[in-house]
Amino acid sequence: MIAQNIGFWIIAVLMVVSALRVVTTNNVVHAALWLVVVLAGAAGQYILLAAEFVAITQVLVYIGAVMVLFLFGTMLTRARIGAESDLNNSYKKLGIPVALVMLVAMGLALTRSFGDEKLPESAKVVSTQEVSDQIFGPYLLPFWALSFVLLAAVVGAIVLARKD
């Protein structure tokens, strides 16, 4: 448990610092690369939470596919790759109190609801078989709906980005 706690705090600090860099850096490519650190840290947290299949999916889909999409999007919409000055709104200071108020509200609710409740010590790793039994059992209908969402997204992206 000690080792898991140390791992949690290292990854958590890394994730928060990288997330702050994502929303403050002046370079779109750097923001994408900091986002990779956040997503990889999230995969690490999923492993700590005994969710190996979700962690592997996170690495494959987010770090593999979504980041390539982001970098392509940056490349196709930018004349130059480098630091820029006009990435932020003029009223960006307004975002700080909004985020802080939300954080305080959520923090109060979490402390009151869960206090110092602990996660089960001997949680077994959820195997891929159990997850697939859930997906293709009780959650089959949402799975079909999701297939149509992905189909529509693929067709929509092609239609939108095509040059006529």
Partner: peptide, 23 residues
């Protein structure tokens, strides 16, 4: 491991994301 340490991490990330969408 506490339940809250994961939930607080998620809350902090959520708020950073909200700040990013606004800013």
């Amino acid at each position: 491991m506490f339940v809250n340490q994961f939930l607080f991490l998620a809350a902090v990330l959520f708020c950073i994301g909200v700040y990013g969408v606004i800013a």
